[in-house]
Design a protein around this nucleic acid. Structure first.
Lengths: 215, 215
DNA sequence: ACCTGAACACCGTTCAAGT
DNA sequence: ACCTGAACACCGTTCAAGT
């Protein structure tokens, strides 16, 4: 909302998304209406339909943006404190100086739980299945990217012998499930007097023990 | 809906719940409206308010009923094929004839995943936090009961040495997170070409390995 | 006690019309 | 291209009134 109320500059779409995210975190999905957004932005109630065919389309756009920031955080957690300005290519080869894989996996898990409990309404949009079929593909693609970040780290762990053999993608599904489920349990107030940080550390400890090579 | 359309018998509440569950599984939460239910049941649109103060109250009642049937299934999976008609009291003490604890834990996990993917919309209602504060307590209580079923089995495992020491409730939180997260991943179509049964078995294998006593 | 009918304040969505 | 205004068909919720 600039001083003059003109949105004839093509930025209405961006303004809608920005406002929508604020309303979402403040009032949840239930509290998010196209008419309400239009009102907040000083525009007619029919204007949003120019930029989002549907209420669902707006929700999907929010989910896409949520996945984008989640994946950025996961990526930075996966590389952790490791400076990546070395001579090699982008892949983080396990050299002796890098943090142990298990520590980076734990960092990844903490980053996920952190994001999840900090963006509960957004996470709901990201993972509940009732999307318009068009953007559903993009959303699934972004979800796969999250899983791939985990899988690549697990693969590095397999090379160093810290992680059991097997399809890294399938192991990543298991690891992702653990932290995803834990975050949702926390949001549902089912952790009670267990501090989330302690529950997270225990979950990561059990998970990493289970992922180690057997026998 | 009996032959004559009379609902003046005090069964409107039950009829609303029954119809609501059908609409929920058919069309999701979005497709569930009080007016629509009233229409389906041949009653005035204001009638439901006599039995449910809110749309939210109806949703909470559905969640409560969902938790009740979930817990029943979990209980029966936890005792598994073990006949409980022995001379002792109700607690399933680990005697030599009972199925190994790990097998019963796996059974419990499969039962949960099975229920979750078969009642996705209901599960959403059960675990998303935005409930009316009154029934919120009951819902949390039922969720704790689910966790307790897992915890008791883990405790039995600790006695037989199959499970690492530690607060069984906290270990149950971890176990629950794993299968809960996996089910939600499946519902979000993020498992791709991995059959759910295979993903479930791998998750249970990793989980049980991680729960075994260390070193 | 239980339900009806009207009323109110909201929605999403569409569509001619304006600039 | 982008937005407006009116219109339509839905909602949830409330409340007097009926039986």
């Amino acid at each position: 909302m600039t001083a003059d109320g003109s949105y004839h500059h093509g930025n209405l779409r961006a303004a809608l998304l920005e406002r929508a995210e604020a309303v979402l975190t403040a009032s949840g999905v239930e509290g998010l209406s196209l008419r309400g957004l239009a009102r907040d932005l000083g525009v007619s109630h029919a204007a949003p339909s120019r930029h989002f065919r549907d209420r669902r389309a707006l929700l999907d756009a929010l989910a896409v943006s949520g996945f984008t920031t989640l994946n950025a955080r996961l990526r930075s957690a996966a590389t952790d404190g490791t400076a990546e300005a070395d001579g090699t290519d982008g892949t983080a080869e396990a050299d002796g100086t890098a943090e142990p894989v298990e520590a980076r996996l734990a960092e990844l898990g903490r980053a996920y739980v952190d994001f999840a409990v900090g963006h509960t309404a957004l996470l709901d949009l990201m993972f509940t299945a009732k999307h318009a079929d068009d953007s559903s593909a993009e959303l699934r693609e972004l979800g796969h990217e999250s899983l791939l970040i985990v899988a690549r780290l697990l693969e590095a762990g397999q090379r160093t012998g810290a992680v059991r053999p097997g399809d890294p993608v399938r192991l990543a599904q298991v690891a992702f499930s653990t932290v995803h489920g834990l975050a949702l349990l926390a949001v549902a107030s089912l952790l009670d007097d267990t501090p989330l940080s302690e529950a997270t550390e225990l979950a990561l400890e059990v998970l990493l023990a289970g992922l180690r090579p057997g026998r």
